[in-house]
Computed example of a mutant assay.
Amino acid sequence: MEIGGGAVLAQLIAQGAAQGADLATLRGIAEEAGELGATRALTRLGLADAGAGRDLAELRALLAAWRDAKRAAWQRFAGWVAAVVLGLIAARLGMGVMR
């Protein structure tokens, strides 16, 4: 049975406290370990520099623009298909009336 990350941390802190470690010290260690892990992960992703926040904001804006353009393209395509279908129906009806 696997325990979630928060539950494991709480269990380890409780175990350390039961074995004589100071609770504040254990929490401090856990906090520092979390900071170190987050910093390492950001560094590996290339997001540890000062401009990373701006870069991510620009990427989000670019992604939003791409999604908007894609949605608009699909809407135009659907409109074009509907116009062609309606044109074909009108042409069929027009030919039937002329016979």
Rank of each mutant, 00 (worst) to 15 (best):
R99N: 11
A78F: 12
A72I: 03
E31Q: 13
G79L: 12
A52V: 05
F77M: 05
G87A: 10
R27E: 13
A91E: 04
L23S: 03
A65P: 00
L86V: 12
A61F: 08
A18K: 07
L12F: 11
L45P: 00
A83S: 10
L45T: 00
E58S: 09
R27I: 10
D22S: 07
I89H: 01
D49F: 00
G46R: 01
V85C: 07
G96H: 11
G34D: 01
R27L: 15
L26C: 04
L23E: 13
G37R: 08
G34H: 02
L9R: 14
G87P: 03
G51I: 03
L59I: 13
D49Q: 00
G46F: 03
L59D: 14
V97H: 09
G20K: 06
Q15R: 10
L9W: 04
L12K: 12
R67Y: 10
A30K: 08
V85R: 10
G79F: 09
G96E: 09
I29S: 01
R76L: 15
E35H: 11
V97A: 15
R67M: 06
E2P: 15
G34F: 00
G79V: 04
R99H: 08
R99T: 10
T43M: 03
R27P: 01
G87D: 06
D55Y: 06
V84R: 10
L26N: 03
R40T: 05
L12E: 12
A30H: 04
A82W: 10
G16P: 02
A52E: 03
A90K: 05
L63Q: 15
L26P: 02
A41E: 06
D22P: 00
L56Y: 02
G79H: 04
D49K: 00
T43D: 02
G96W: 14
V97Q: 08
M95F: 12
R54T: 13
R99L: 11
V81Q: 11
L88I: 12
L23W: 08
L86D: 02
G94A: 15
G37T: 02
G46N: 02
K70F: 09
R76P: 01
D55I: 03
A24M: 09
A24Q: 15
L42K: 11
G5H: 08
L42V: 01
V81R: 14
A17T: 14
A90H: 06
D49M: 00
Q75A: 14
L56M: 11
L63H: 13
A21V: 05
